[in-house]
Amino acid sequence: MKQPTQTRIIIAGFGGQGIVLIGNLIARGALIEGKNVTGMVAYGAEMRGGTAYATVVVSEDEIACPFVEKPDTAIVLNRPSMDKFEPAVQPGGLILVNTSLVQRDLKRMDISTIFVAATEIAQELGNLKVANLAALGAFIQHSGLLQPQSIQQAAEDLFSSKNPKLLPLNLAALKAGMHQSRFMEAVGLTGR
């Protein structure tokens, strides 16, 4: 995929699915590659099981606007997020769908799609909590936004300072997500 100079991302799912961690790792990966980045987490009466979302802007240039209303990319880990953010994605954009929890077809044909059964991958690895890293792996594999080694480095930095024991499992989920995912080009665009 051709990379625009600025990519605006929304990551959404249930509170507790590790939405914030995905955003954090993308931001740290961008920082490692020397790109400009801003990140924000929706704050308010958030709770485990409620909806949660984070936004990240990655850019070669100075970032003017840190909030994301019309994302280029949406990473959706559950059904309510799919319903909310699929219509918001810019034409020609990208959506990543966690097929384990989103069992409906896409309504948009003008955006590319990454399919990954993130929750099932996490289940196979023995810990549901790493579904987020599986989704992130799939995103990195197909979006071309950041190098896989940057995200791996970001994960190593973050986990080694917080909880090194969890690093191998998370890296395994990242790899599994990269390999067990599919990419589908947008079909509704002219000239394709």
Binding site: N24, V37, T38, G39, M40, I63, P66, F67
Partner: peptide, 10 residues
């Protein structure tokens, strides 16, 4: 403001 406090930037 709330955004300046909540947003992250290197």
């Amino acid at each position: 403001d709330g955004i300046l406090g909540q947003m992250a930037e290197p």
